[in-house]
């Protein structure tokens, strides 16, 4: 089945099986392996991507349901040159160990801070409850997201959603 959508600013046109998940489509067909596949039933959050700026589970979304939409993966949140505010904060706080959950943490946190740059710790914890990490114990992740807020505050919504390469 033919489907067309935008991934990290680039238009893509694919012919896929309807049963292909967006996560597998991104990894297998588009070679964007930053999106990780963990549980495949909507519990772990490793596959989180943004659809029209909203965080969703790519394992619970069909590639054909992305038709006409704008997808952002973790690759789209970095320019490979300088660290984004979230990347820099994760490094500063040692907010990753094995790194498997990190793409989902970064995409989720980016969606949250783009929409709610003034969110408090309670809100950060509530939102990150949909992302499992088996290494860190979450505390450094929560601290990193709270720390990254300052880069998102005082920016327009459009500027916030494009905060991908500001070294801090």
């Amino acid at each position: 089945m033919k489907t067309e959508f935008e991934v990290n600013g680039q238009p893509v046109a694919l012919d896929v099986e309807p049963r292909l998940s967006l996560a597998d489509c991104l990894r297998r067909d588009l070679h964007l392996t930053g999106t990780h596949v963990g549980c495949e039933h909507g519990v772990c959050g490793a596959c989180t991507v943004l659809i029209d700026g909203e965080a969703v589970r790519a394992c619970l979304t069909l590639a054909v349901q992305a038709d006409g939409r704008r997808i952002t993966t973790v690759e789209g949140l970095s320019d490979d040159q300088a660290l984004s505010p979230l990347q820099a904060a994760f490094r500063r706080h040692n907010a990753l160990q094995c790194g498997f959950c990190t793409p989902g943490m970064i995409t989720t946190a980016h969606a949250l801070l783009s929409e709610e740059p003034n969110c408090d710790e309670h809100r950060v914890r509530e939102v990150l409850s949909g992302n499992l990490c088996r290494c860190t114990g979450y505390m450094p992740i929560v601290k990193a997201v709270l720390d990254a807020r300052s880069a998102y505050q005082g920016q327009s919504p459009a500027q916030r959603s494009n905060l991908t390469s500001v070294e801090k």
Binding site: A55, V56, L60, V127, G130
Partner: peptide, 9 residues
């Protein structure tokens, strides 16, 4: 209801 990402869909 569920989590942040699920609530968006």
């Amino acid at each position: 209801v569920a989590h942040y990402q699920v609530r968006n869909r």
